[in-house]
Design a protein around this nucleic acid. Structure first.
Ligand SMILES: [Mn+2]
Ligand SMILES: [Mn+2]
Ligand SMILES: [Mn+2]
Ligand SMILES: [Mn+2]
Lengths: 221, 221
DNA sequence: AAATATTTTTAGACAAACCTAAATTATTTT
DNA sequence: AAAATAATTTAGGTTTGTCTAAAAATATTT
């Protein structure tokens, strides 16, 4: 695996995370994620296409190539191992680890990361509960959780719906919820166990207990 | 302390190390050390002067300001703490630690470094025997080692002679060895524990066991 | 004290990564 | 199917850090 710049790595990682929701990622989505401007994203996509890390056709979004996916998993491996190190060994708190790992993840020595992994005892989840890819880039499916059990204000992605009847699917499509939809539970009403959820920038909507029990989500990064 | 780029930090650190030899550092020296070109050094010195990290007058060399010295010691602190971590915790070998620390030293979180220091038990020397500055930038004189114990081909500077009798000093001056002499041990003969040493560009000379046991040197960076 | 050699700086260029503003393409509304 | 809107790309510019080649300053010889 060749060496990539910090910027290239941040783009690749961001595409990987966004891809989990949609299939292909758009210029504006990525610009938003990276707090950069759409024009900068276009510039970078041209470069990453030449380097064969993404598939990209002008005006039609992009997705990672196999090579790109491998790189993304490597960067995520580094990031999460450092997060584990910071929390476990240096006693950083839960919320502090991310910012520092954002820098450490770009130190690219393969040996460093593999030895760190060993030193830490081959941990399988980072301090946020996200799975850590192994040295071959293999990653466990992150635990799916029923929407009823998702903590408030934690963004998650719909990964599975257990009831797939037409009635259920009709309701889901009416509420614009599907596999890959990113959402957040804002409130939980004890009276009927209904949830107020927020999808992207849209206004909050309500979900009944029956519906929420059939929706399974996985935590986002 | 503000944040500086990786490049700026590498320049500052290199000036600090070169300064130990001469008082002021020249454009060509620094370009050689950093494997860059003299024109690039001039460009950077103008910038570092504006940022008040160096004193610099065109055509007359440069040296670190107090602010620059503080920054250099901070970078060296990071570098050596990471070297210690790599050797001690990740079981990297002696020679491998430097290259990786060269990258890790630029991750600038103050908390990261202070917590790392604590985790490592506040080590005072890195794996090469060089002293580690404390969190206030204070640094001990570097560890002195008997010439007999100096590894082969490691440049070092004579720092102390334990026997100071006239006979000893006569022999030393004949061999042109004094405090500050830079040398390297090229061979060690098991038969009589005599050493073949090299001083600068001169032809190698021989030193008896008795003499070498009274010469103490400190490693060069 | 000139002449010569060496060192250093300047001038001008380039790649990476970003930006703003304008042009283009795609999507949605009417 | 136009028109209006939104998304995306292009054009052109900036900053950082590098380079080569030429000019200027300093140091060394003669
Ligand atoms: Mn990052
Ligand atoms: Mn995490
Ligand atoms: Mn470095
Ligand atoms: Mn060292």
């Amino acid at each position: 695996m060749l060496n990539y710049s910090t910027s290239e790595e941040n783009y690749i990682k961001a595409i990987f995370h966004l891809q989990h929701a949609d299939g292909t990622v758009t210029t504006n989505e990525l610009a938003g994620e990276l707090r950069t401007k759409p024009a900068s994203v276009t510039d970078m996509m041209k470069k990453l296409k030449i380097k064969k890390l993404v598939h990209y056709e002008a005006y039609h979004g992009f997705r990672l190539s196999n090579e790109g996916k491998k790189l993304a998993l490597l960067i995520i491996r580094r990031h999460r191992l450092w997060e584990f190190f910071l929390a476990e060994k240096l006693r950083f708190s839960w919320e502090e680890v991310h910012a520092v790992a954002e820098d450490l993840e770009h130190v690219s020595s393969k040996k460093l990361i593999d030895k760190l992994d060993e030193f830490l005892g081959f941990p399988r989840f980072d301090p946020h509960g996200d799975p850590i890819p192994d040295s071959h880039g293999r990653i466990e499916a992150s635990k799916q959780v029923c929407l009823q059990d998702l903590p408030l204000n934690k963004t998650a992605t719909v990964g599975h719906v257990s009831d797939q009847s037409p009635a259920m699917l009709e309701l889901l499509s009416h509420k614009k919820i599907g596999i890959g939809t990113k959402l957040e539970v804002k409130r939980k009403f004890g009276f009927d166990n209904s949830l107020e959820i927020k999808i992207r920038q849209q206004a909050p909507i309500n979900i009944s207990e029956q519906l929420s029990k059939n929706i399974f989500v996985k935590y986002d990064e």
